[in-house]
Simulated scan of single mutants.
Amino acid sequence: MRFVLYFLLVVNVLVFLVGWVSNSAPASESLDSIVDFASGSPLKLIEEVDRNLLREKSEATALAQAKGLCAMAGPFKLLTKADVLVERLLALDVKSDIREVDVPVDHAYWVYLEPEVSRVNALKKLKELQEQNIDSYVIPKNELENGISLGMFNNQDLALARKKEIMKLGYQPKIKNVPRSTTQNWVVVEPEEAQKLGVESWQRMLDGMKGVSYKQNYCPDVASLQ
Rank of each mutant, 00 (worst) to 15 (best):
M1I: 09
L5P: 07
Y6V: 14
F7P: 09
V10H: 10
V11L: 11
V18S: 13
W20R: 14
N23K: 12
S24R: 14
A27C: 14
A27V: 10
S30K: 12
L31M: 14
D32S: 13
S33C: 12
A38D: 10
S39G: 07
G40W: 01
S41Q: 12
I46Y: 05
E47Q: 09
L54I: 06
E56T: 09
E56C: 06
S58L: 05
E59I: 05
A60T: 02
A60K: 10
A64M: 05
M72A: 12
P75W: 01
K77I: 08
K81H: 15
A82E: 01
V86W: 07
E87W: 13
R88H: 12
L89N: 03
A91W: 01
A91T: 11
K95M: 03
V105K: 05
D106Y: 08
W110F: 07
V111K: 00
V111C: 01
V111S: 03
L113D: 02
E116D: 14
E116G: 02
E116V: 00
V117L: 07
R119L: 14
L123C: 15
K125A: 13
K125D: 05
Q130P: 13
Q130F: 02
N133C: 11
S136Q: 10
N146R: 11
L150M: 05
M152P: 00
R162I: 04
K163L: 09
I166P: 00
P173G: 05
K174P: 02
R180W: 00
R180K: 06
S181W: 06
T183Y: 06
W186H: 08
V187F: 07
V188S: 05
V188D: 01
V188F: 04
V189W: 04
E193V: 02
E193I: 04
Q195W: 08
K196P: 15
L197N: 00
E200W: 05
Q203D: 15
R204D: 13
M205L: 14
G208Y: 02
Q216T: 04
N217M: 11
Y218G: 09
Y218E: 09
C219V: 00
V222F: 04
